[in-house]
């Protein structure tokens, strides 16, 4: 559905996107992650035809967005980050206008309006002025607009930004539901959201794509997958020295002491498991062992590891 190939966008001497490539297959829900200023919004704006690329191509449904701007825009439902709306319009009036400029008419438009109002939970407020709505409802109006022409592709730029936890939850459920029938490119900072909803994750930073894979693959290939916590009753310095000497152990950090018990974090190489050897070491040294735990890496670890600047 989406194919971005070596996309570059320069603003003067500053490159917002440099050589980004990724794909989204039909029906996939793709999480588009990156720190602020990573180039997410710029990439999205190129895909939606709001900005032209400096070089590289972006295609939607096999059509180049620069060569067929109107055809590709018809296939995209776009919710911009700031959710711009006409404040002085009523919800139905706004959706009617948006439907009209997207080429919907008459009975069909009326039916679509009822459908999206229902789907986005706007039924109770549909006659209200947009300026009187809360942020959560505005977000829903934006989403209803994105859906009105029933596009196969939805591009949502931080749809849960600035909402309260209940609103986040309801928007997230809505996106999840929509994911069953649409291809979705979901830009967000909220990693738990991505873990819950997305089939695939694209991580971008500094305008380049750093990783593009399923959440479980990303997590399992991460180096930070190999973090082990251990609590033993031993002299901290000696324990640290002994454990550091084991194969595949990269670093041992003495976290704290709880009474006689010392807590250590141990970083090991990815794809290895040192727990058995640690247990053996404790037995040989005669250290009482209270806990030994390998941490499952989270998407947060992956994200931080890939995009951390220090």
């Amino acid at each position: 559905m989406i194919k971005v190939d070596n996309l570059t966008k320069r603003f003067g001497r500053h490159s917002a996107v440099s050589g980004a490539s990724f794909e989204a297959a039909d029906g996939e829900v793709v999480g588009f992650l990156g720190p602020n200023g990573a180039g997410k919004t710029t990439t999205i704006r190129i895909l939606t035809g709001f900005l032209p690329a400096t070089s590289g191509t972006a295609t939607v449904d096999g059509l180049d967005v620069a060569e067929h701007p109107l055809e590709t825009r018809r296939r995209i439902g776009y919710l911009p980050e700031s959710v711009p709306l006409y404040r002085d319009m009523r919800i139905r009036e706004y959706l009617r206008f948006r439907g009209h400029i997207k080429g919907l008419r008459g009975d069909f438009l009326r039916r679509r309006m009822d459908e999206v109002i229902d789907r986005c939970g706007l039924g109770d407020v549909r006659r209200k002025m947009i300026k009187t709505l809360s942020k959560g409802f505005r977000q829903r109006v934006g989403l209803a607009d994105a859906l009105i022409h029933d596009p196969p592709l939805l591009i949502l730029d931080e749809p849960t930004n600035g909402l309260d936890p209940n609103q986040i939850r309801s928007i997230r459920n809505l996106v999840k539901e929509l994911g069953e029938s649409h291809t979705i490119l979901l830009s967000t900072h909220i990693l738990s959201e991505v873990e819950m909803i997305c089939d695939k994750i694209v991580i971008i930073d500094g305008g380049t794509v750093l990783a593009s894979d399923t959440p479980s693959n990303l997590v399992s290939t991460m180096r930070s997958a190999g973090r082990i916590s251990i609590e033993v009753k031993a002299d901290p310095e000696r324990a640290q020295e002994k454990m550091s000497a084991l194969d595949q152990v990269k670093k041992v950090i003495h976290e704290r002491n709880r009474g006689n018990w010392g807590e250590f974090s141990i970083l090991v190489e990815s794809g290895t498991d040192t727990r058995e050897r640690l247990a053996n070491l404790a037995r040989e040294e005669g250290w009482p062992l209270r806990s030994l735990h390998r941490h499952a890496a989270t998407l947060e670890d992956v994200f931080v590891e890939l995009t951390r600047k220090d």
Binding site: F50, R73, R74, I101
Partner: peptide, 14 residues
């Protein structure tokens, strides 16, 4: 200012 230019020009409008 309101950002609605973006929604207008990402709809199929020339």
């Amino acid at each position: 200012r309101a950002g609605t230019l973006e929604t207008l020009l990402t709809a199929p409008v020339q």
